[in-house]
């Protein structure tokens, strides 16, 4: 295992010796350690069931770790009480394979949901947003090319458009990190390309770190600064895309016949 430090700042996120046991048979995460700096674009690859989703959800404590520690901006996430945990979560965006929008609500309403973590319980519950918040949401919606859909219900949008709403909802949080769980797994190649390019662009321009679970190795190679290969709950590769040789890919995916063929980025 290669442990490299190409961090453009102090570690924003530190995962150390994290274990996750769902039911006591085989651990879903087995002694995971890595750290991530500001603005890094990290792809997490591995066969399905390797523990990628679990890993992502341990970072914002949607799932409690069984052992080990996650530190975000130097604060141990597992020690936090409810209120402080919400504060940490408000700085961590999350994007999902199935978009996880309130489909019956409009684009702007869904995007503004990203502000709920930073509001008082009352104004959040009543859905009262400040003029600034609305303006910021509108700007992001335009930047993502959804200007003409602002007041459209999300169940009328295509998959790619829904995912862009998901990205806007994460960005409006003004996050330090965005966790993306298979953001393009339900999209066609064209929509996938748009989504990956927008993620890359925001990561660069706004210095947001990204952790992106992917099952397409070629996408990981093309967009990421760094790749984590996960197999059976363990990190078996941690390095730059250029270091990911076919042998290492075979190692990450085991001897499975289902290991994806790699198309190197042209």
């Amino acid at each position: 295992m290669t442990q490299i430090s190409q961090l453009p700042g102090a570690p924003l996120l530190e995962v150390s010796h994290v274990m996750k046991n769902y039911d006591g048979t085989r651990p879903a995460l087995d002694d995971i350690s890595f750290s991530i700096g500001k603005g890094e674009f990290v792809a997490v690859i591995g066969p399905s069931g390797a523990g990628k989703s679990t890993l992502l959800r341990c970072i914002n404590r949607m799932i409690d770790v069984s052992d080990g520690e996650v530190r975000f901006e130097g604060v141990s996430v597992s020690q936090l009480n409810r209120r402080d945990l919400k504060k940490v979560r408000s700085k961590i965006g999350m994007i999902f394979q199935h978009y996880n929008l309130v489909e019956r609500l409009t684009v702007i309403e869904n995007v503004l949901h990203g502000r709920l973590g930073s509001k008082s319980t009352l104004s959040g519950a009543l859905g009262r947003y400040s003029r600034d918040e609305k303006r910021q949401a509108m700007e992001l919606i335009s930047m993502l090319g959804l200007a003409e859909h602002v007041y459209q219900r999300c169940d009328r949008l295509s998959g790619g458009q829904k995912q862009r709403v998901g990205i806007a909802r994460a960005l409006v949080q003004d996050p330090k990190v965005i966790l993306c769980d298979e953001p393009i797994a339900s999209l066609d190649p064209n929509a996938s390309k748009v989504i990956m390019e927008q993620l890359k662009r925001f990561s660069n321009e706004m210095h947001i770190s990204l952790i992106v679970n992917l099952h397409q190795v070629d996408v990981a190679l093309r967009y990421s600064d760094r790749i984590l290969g996960v197999n059976k709950g363990r990190i078996v590769f941690d390095g730059r895309p250029s270091e990911l040789s076919p042998e290492r890919i075979a190692e990450i995916y085991g001897t499975e016949l289902s290991a994806p063929r790699v198309r190197y980025a042209s």
Binding site: F96, V102, L116, G117, G124, A125, G127
Partner: peptide
Amino acid sequence: VSIHAVEALQATGASHTSIILQAVLPSSLP
């Protein structure tokens, strides 16, 4: 109808009341 949206709002740090009023009810009321 609301389990996925609830997960997303929990991840943003939204309060339980906000989640119910902003995500659960709008999705399931009809």
